[in-house]
């Protein structure tokens, strides 16, 4: 029952994109189609589950002072694995995600989960947390990707539904469309759930706010 709760937490209450507003860069960049969103989501989920598991196993061994570099090394290891897997078996996906595959290393979601969950919870819970967060991220990416693809390319998962004279609204595939669709979807979800998403001072990046008390320093 507790495991189910952890997974649900990642998908709904603490959805990494719509609630925590983490990992904006890949979210905006790769969601030009639902398929790319799905690929990116699954790649990130793999890294998230792997790094959560290893960091949770090592949580009593890693000294507190060097924990951030240690996390980065673990995460970068998993990113390299997924990079090579994609290059070998999914070259088309690798091509379209491009630069954003190695950039999973600096995805705030993974670092945030390592710092706030995996380093203080047992292995099994951390794995479940990784799965929940990963599903939350993937579902959000597919949602954004689908909306952009339907409006911008007139297709659903690559299948075109345009007939005759209909033309897609190309701007939604271009960078401005990414910002706009994410903004409107976030507002829609806020409307339904009756909440707001304030901007925290340091963005949502977990690195500086945890342990270094940057928030206090920069206010002063």
């Amino acid at each position: 029952m507790k495991g189910f709760k952890i997974i649900k937490n990642g998908i709904l209450n603490e959805n990494p994109i719509f609630r925590m507003v983490l990992g904006m860069c890949p979210t905006l960049a790769v969601t030009t189609s639902a398929e790319n969103g799905l690929g990116m989501g699954l790649a990130t989920t793999f890294c998230l589950v792997g790094s959560n598991m290893i960091i949770s196993l090592l949580r009593r061994i890693i000294p507190d002072k060097v924990r951030i570099p240690a996390y980065i090394t673990v995460i970068a290891g998993f990113v390299t694995i997924i990079e090579l897997i994609l290059k070998a078996f999914f070259p088309a996906l690798d091509e379209s995600l491009g630069l954003f595959i190695p950039l999973i290393v600096v995805n705030c979601i993974i670092m945030a989960r390592a710092e706030s969950f995996a380093n203080r919870n047992p292995v099994w819970d951390s794995i479940l947390d990784g799965i929940g967060m990963g599903i939350g991220f993937t579902v959000s990416l597919v949602l954004i990707g689908s909306v952009r693809e339907i409006l911008g390319a007139g297709s659903i998962f690559g299948k075109s539904f345009l007939t005759g004279e209909m033309k897609p609204i190309l701007i939604f595939l271009l960078p401005p469309g990414g910002f706009m669709i994410l903004g409107f979807l976030m507002a829609l979800i806020n409307k339904i759930t009756n909440r707001t998403t304030p901007i925290r001072h340091c963005g949502s990046c977990p690195m500086n706010c945890v342990g270094r008390s940057c928030e206090k320093e920069s206010v002063a």
């Binding site: 401005p176 910002f179 706009m180 903004g183 409107f184 976030m186 507002a187 998403t197 304030p198």
Partner: peptide, 23 residues
């Protein structure tokens, strides 16, 4: 700003227009 747009959403929409200008 409408309640549901406060904070992040409206900033993203504003960023969309700045990005549009850069296009």
């Amino acid at each position: 700003v409408p309640e549901c747009f406060k904070g992040f959403p409206i900033s993203l929409v504003a960023a969309a227009f700045v990005s549009l200008a850069f296009m």
